[in-house]
Design a protein around this nucleic acid. Structure first.
Length: 588
RNA sequence: GCUCCAGUAGCUCAGGGGAUAGAGCAUUGGUUUCCUAAACCAAGUGCCGCAGGUUCGAAUCCUGCCUGGAGCACCA
């Protein structure tokens, strides 16, 4: 690092979140105006400053119109009064009052230029926020049961969850990534039985698979390996033996698939452990003690038809959770008449334990198909007298892999397939595109939107994807650095006052990053980071095109300043890519 | 039937009280002595699903409706 930068670092120069600074200053000015009697006393509403739409409206804007009904004054007058009370701000060059009542702030160019050094001093941790300092967060995501490979559907939740975790880390939280999975219950029995049948098939027996069994080719591979190693020695083993083998294989596969897109969990939590630890039954006892359970063949409030149906099935009494007491449309079974618990019981116990572990924030990424179940769990926590407030669920809408059918002139769903290469697993997706492309496309969309993942477009046009557009911004910086090094050109003692209007435009945009991280983290909207990355790249590329460094017509002092500017840009793109879990390649 | 999500440019989608509604893709035309074309410059398109309401101000909030999706198990 150049000596002058080291000196700057000693000054502990940090990149500020300017919108926060402005909001603080405005709140202070408003208070002063009220104290001076220029504005009547009222509790001011929280009105954020935002970036204006157009040129000529400054870099940040505060709509004082929002205060009109409290202050009972004209918006323009309020804006004027506040502006007069504003303290001096070193990063503001001009303050303008514009109709119908905006206070527009224009950033000081020399301040902007200094930010280049500030960004370089902070390096990889630029815009590391303090919001979550000393606090812990957990993000639970993927949580696919080990009954098959990671599909496109899982992938979306996986990418969103991991990006959420990265954002919370950037916001200052200590983050744990957790994977919860069900290895008790019917699905895993079916998995074990399925593997056993495949094994018997390998031994030459004719087998048939009942409904609900797993037909994927992956079990054939495992079975073939078992047959090769053990011949028919396993013939007498039960489904549990085969389930354990299948689960182990599936998990190895799942972890490998996730690692390929740089997703690693800190903790794997399984359903079985809830029974081994007794948490499930303790939860049942606690619900019972609080009076929310009852034994009955049918739920309270069931209609005659429903009761008749149950009677026909000959059910014995089951244990019901009175979730309707919390607004559920009907009560839910916790323990089946046969004595086995439903999925709901360990699920509530799991969430109870999640709360007991004391995270300040517990994010859960779930598919919308879990919405109702999630509600029941929430009612369960309430019934236990717990406050579910730390838990925030991000519901991810369905994702389909689609491809264009030319003959029909329409998109059609890529069928769930047992064979590799049909794009329905994460592995296939990565193989056909890249880990970076998969991550970006899964992230660059609101979780609330259904996603049709056009596999052909991602494959065929991958070279024109925003993925590469963003990465190329970093690559271009890296190219300059390589060339500079070859020519022995450095940015030591760069004079940043030589940076021009275009570089300042980039810096203005770049300084929004802190706010973007904050908004994305606190609103649980990791897709915002993907859009910002694209926007920043769009500001970058035209500048790169015209603002050259190692060019015969560029005087060396200017080149020095520009080189340093690009160093800062590279830091920012690296930070953004890392927040999205993408790589920052040195070359394309 | 009930709950949740979505409906914005030809397509895929951002924006979710504030100034003249945006981006990518696709389409069309142009740009390369020296770090640069996976790039840049230029051109065009919108009853913001429909109808009311609230507000100084609505794509954004409220109500109703239409369309598409997800869920509403003694499955997980």
């Amino acid at each position: 690092m150049p000596a002058d930068l080291l000196r700057a670092q000693k000054d502990r120069r940090t990149v500020k979140q300017l919108n926060r600074e402005l909001e603080k200053a405005i709140a202070a000015a408003l208070g002063s105006a009220q104290a001076a009697g220029e504005l009547p006393p009222f509790a001011p509403p929280a009105i954020p400053v935002s970036s204006p739409r157009r040129a000529g409206q400054g870099d940040w804007a505060y709509p004082a119109m929002g205060l009109a009904k409290y202050a009972r004054r004209k918006p323009l007058e309020i804006a004027q009064i506040i502006a007069e009370q504003l303290p001096a701000l070193d990063f503001v060059q001009a303050i303008d009052i514009l109709p119908p009542g905006f206070i527009n702030f224009t950033l000081c160019p020399s301040y902007l230029r200094q930010q280049v050094d500030a960004i370089l001093c902070e390096g990889e941790s630029v815009f590391q926020l303090e919001i979550g300092a000393g606090k812990s967060a957990q993000v639970e995501f993927v949580s696919a049961n080990p009954s098959g490979p990671i599909t496109i559907g899982h992938t979306r939740g996986a990418v969103i969850g991991d990006a959420m975790a990265r954002l919370l880390e950037a916001a200052g939280y200590q983050v744990q990534r957790e994977y919860y999975y069900n290895n008790a219950g019917n699905q895993m029995i079916a998995l074990g039985e399925s593997l056993k049948l495949r094994y018997l098939e390998q031994l030459g027996e004719t087998v048939s698979f009942p409904d609900g069994y797993y037909l994927g080719d992956y079990l054939i591979e495992v079975a073939a390996a078992l047959a090769a190693e053990h011949a028919d020695a396993l013939r007498g083993r039960d489904w549990q033996f085969f389930r354990d083998i299948a689960e182990r294989h599936m998990f190895a596969w799942i972890k490998r698939s996730l690692a390929a897109v740089d997703i690693l969990h800190d903790n794997f939590y399984n359903e079985t452990s809830l029974f081994e630890s007794g948490r499930a039954w303790q939860t049942l006892d606690a619900l019972s003690g609080r009076g929310y359970l009852y034994e009955s063949t049918h739920r309270e409030g069931a209609g005659a038809a429903e009761i008749a149906d149950i009677t026909a099935k000959g059910y014995q009494p089951a244990t019901w959770f009175r979730s309707s007491a919390f607004g559920d449309e009907k009560d839910r079974v916790m323990v089946k008449s046969g004595g086995e618990p439903t999925y709901t019981l360990p699920d509530i116990a799991y969430h109870r334990h999640k709360l007991e572990r004391g995270f300040d924030i517990a994010v859960i990424v779930l598919g919308t198909d879990h919405f109702s179940q999630s509600q029941v769990v929430k009612y369960g926590l309430q019934a236990l007298g717990l406050d579910p407030a730390p838990i925030h669920v991000i519901f991810v809408q369905m994702v389909r892999a689609v491809r264009w059918n030319e003959a029909r002139g329409a998109f059609e769903t890529v069928k769930q397939s047992k064979r590799a290469g049909d794009f329905d697993t994460l592995d296939d997706l990565v193989a056909m595109t890249s880990a970076d492309a998969v991550r970006y496309h899964m992230l660059a969309r609101s979780p609330n939107s259904q996603l049709d993942f056009d596999v052909d477009q991602v494959v065929k046009q991958s070279n024109e994807n925003p993925v590469y557009y963003i990465q190329n911004a970093y690559v271009r910086c890296a190219g300059i650095f390589r060339e500079a090094q070859e020519r022995g050109f450095s940015d030591d003692d760069a004079d940043l006052s030589l940076l021009g209007a275009e570089e300042l435009r980039f810096l203005r945009k770049a300084l929004e990053l802190g706010n973007v991280i904050e908004q994305a983290a606190l609103a649980y909207e990791p897709h915002k980071i993907a859009f910002f990355a694209q926007e920043l790249a769009a500001v970058f590329h035209p500048i790169y095109d015209s603002v050259r460094v190692l060019h015969s017509e560029v005087p060396p002092p200017v080149a020095k300043a520009r080189l340093r500017f690009y160093r800062a840009a590279a830091v920012l793109f690296r930070r953004l890519l890392s927040l999205m879990g993408m790589t920052a390649p040195e070359r394309m």
